[in-house]
């Protein structure tokens, strides 16, 4: 009775739009991949697929963190830089022959610490997150440059294997023939799914994202919740950064920066899979996988960075344009 549709054929156009909403994005993503598969059959070879899955973990884990912040209408431009810094710390510790627990614990502590500072600046001081985390990104970058004497790569793969075997297992090892990194990714996905479904934090975060004032009056500590998102983002980014260095055996300062753009694309694309264009953990997983497959396909076709950037941007804009259809005004 009170539908907002004003078109002359409400029933027909509503069904069409409904169809488009529900299946369009998924079909579109599949279509892109099918095109790659036709152009380069090797794209769908088991080896390539396993390779892409292996590669996608770092991006997906970073995107999870970004997604948590963005679901509260925040944004964290420093996620990729945190990953970068964390990886660098891990590499330097390995080079100095530190024990494995420290090699892992120190970067994670760094990620949590940066997340805390980001959260304090955004939630307690009130600096818009886009500004605060942009500033933080540059502060970390400076730190990295100074730590590495002007962006000298920290090379681990040329070290004696005895020193690096344990650390490299994270990114290169296999458990029962399955990449340990993929298993780590699945584990983190399960944990994030549980965290964002079954914890009081997730409910509160959703309320903060939906209406911060109402959430506050309902007795929610909105500042702590908002800051908490940045801490999660910091921690996950640090995990991803350590995994990246373990996978590649080298830590190049600023090497992880491109992940920022990919992560945005993954999160925005992920919203297409939800009925109300919301950010969801499974959506981010699919978005991250798609972006990695896309990059892989472009590489196979011999198309490099310009196309990746261009398509990432175009997909973000497309995702938002479709999302605009889904939301009530």
């Amino acid at each position: 009775m009170q539908t907002s549709s004003t078109s002359p054929h409400p029933a027909l156009s509503a069904t069409l739009v409904d169809m488009l909403r529900t299946y369009g994005p998924a079909i579109g993503m599949l279509g892109v991949l099918v095109v790659f598969a036709i152009l380069k059959p090797v794209f769908l070879s088991p080896a390539n697929i396993a390779n892409v899955m292996h590669q996608s973990v770092v991006l997906i884990v970073i995107s999870f963190g970004l997604a948590v912040v963005m679901s509260m209408r925040g944004v964290d431009l420093s996620v990729a830089q945190i990953a970068d810094g964390a990886g660098l710390i891990a590499a330097i510790l390995v080079l100095n022959g530190q024990p494995l627990w420290l090699v892992i614990a120190a970067p994670l502590a760094f990620g949590v610490g940066i997340g805390l500072v980001n959260g304090l600046i955004a939630a307690y001081v009130g600096v818009p997150a886009v500004i605060g985390t942009l500033g933080m990104m540059f502060i970390i970058r400076s730190g990295e440059l100074m730590m590495t004497n002007g962006a000298e790569p920290q090379i681990l793969f040329s070290l004696p294997r005895g020193l690096t075997r344990a650390f490299f297992f994270i990114g290169q090892g296999k458990i029962f023939g399955i990449s340990a990194l993929v298993l780590l990714g699945i584990l983190i996905f399960m944990i994030m799914l549980a965290v964002m479904t079954f914890t009081p934090f997730a409910r509160r975060a959703k309320a903060v994202g939906g209406n911060a004032r109402a959430a506050m009056l309902a007795g929610i500590d909105i500042r702590a919740v908002f800051a908490g998102g940045f801490v999660i983002a910091g921690l996950l980014s640090a995990v991803a950064g350590v995994a990246l260095v373990s996978r590649t055996g080298i830590a190049v300062p600023r090497g992880a920066e491109p992940y920022l753009l990919d992560a945005f694309a993954a999160v925005y694309l992920g919203t297409l899979l939800s009925r109300r264009a919301e950010i969801t953990i499974p959506g981010v997983l699919v978005g991250g996988l798609f972006i990695t497959f896309l990059g892989n396909g472009l590489t196979l076709l011999g198309l490099g960075a310009p196309f990746r950037y261009g398509l990432n941007g175009a997909f973000i804009l497309l995702a938002m344009a479709i999302g605009a259809l889904k939301r009530p005004h």
């Binding site: 209408r73 944004v75 600096v127 605060g132 500033g135």
Partner: peptide, 30 residues
């Protein structure tokens, strides 16, 4: 190498100066 960091710091501080008195939480319209 420290310059980007200094700029980042100035960016945060200059905003913090303005918003601290009427602090909301730093949400952006996404």
């Amino acid at each position: 190498q420290a310059l980007p960091g200094v700029q980042g710091l100035i960016l945060i501080l200059s905003i913090a100066l303005g918003v601290f008195r009427r602090r909301a939480i730093g949400q952006v319209l996404i």
